[in-house]
Amino acid sequence: MKFGVVVFPGSNCDHDAYHVISKHVGQPVDFIWHKETDLSGFDAVIIPGGFSYGDYLRCGALARFSPVMQSIKDFAAEGKFVFGICNGFQILCEAGLLPGALMRNEGLHFICKHVNLKLENQNTPFTTEVDPARVLSIPIAHAEGNYTCDDATFQQLEENGQIVFRYCDEKGEVTDAANPNGARSNIAGICNVDRNVLGMMPHPERACEEMLGSNDGRDIFRSLTKAIAEVESAA
C-alpha cells in the first residue's frame, strides 16, 4: 500500500497530509512533484490544500494544467483513489473530475475555524469507518469554499449519493446558520459517481491529533486505508 501527496508550487498542506499518513495511518507515503507523470506504485493520491499557482486566475485553475493532472485523470479512471482537500477539491472541480465549482465565500472573508460536519453517505471508500451518528469537528480554512452547481447537477448529486459531507450545527442539524460560506445545500464534500474520487473543503489532516482539538479526521484516512487493503486482498 502506498499513498502519494501531490506538491504544486504553492501547496502548503502537503507536509500535514504526509505527516498524518506516515505517523497516524502508519502507511508508506511519498511526495509527488507536479511535473511527475508516473503514478505507478501508488494506490491513493492526495491533492493537498494550499494556494497552487498563487490562486492566480481562479483557485485550482492553473494546477489543472500541470503534467501530473493528466496522470491523475488516468489514475482515477482506473478506479484508484483520489482525495482532494480544500485547494485539492478546487483543483478536482477545475479539472472536471468532480462536478460544480467553488466560489468566493458568501461573506467574502477567509474563514479559519472548526466546523461541524454531518456524514451523508457512509457507503464510499472514504467513509466506511466514519460513524454516521456522530457530528464531526474538522477545521475549514478557505476564502473560496462556496460550492455551487446547476440544478441538474445538484439533482444528480442527490440521486447518486454523491453528497458526502454537509455543514451542520452541533446537533447534526443542517441549517443555514451552520453554513459557513454559502455553499449550495450546505455541501462540504462530494464524490464522483464511481465514488473513488472525493473532494472536501474541510481539512481532516488537521484533525488527527487530540492536541490539535480533534481527531475526527482519522476515521476518513482509516476508511481509505481499509478500502486500499480490500483492493489489495482482492487482487
Binding site: L57, A61, F65, E94, A101, T148, D150
Partner: peptide, 8 residues
C-alpha cells in the same frame, strides 16, 4: 478551456 470556468 482556460480563462473562464464554464460552470460559473
Amino acid at each position: 478551456d482556460v480563462l473562464a470556468n464554464p460552470v460559473i
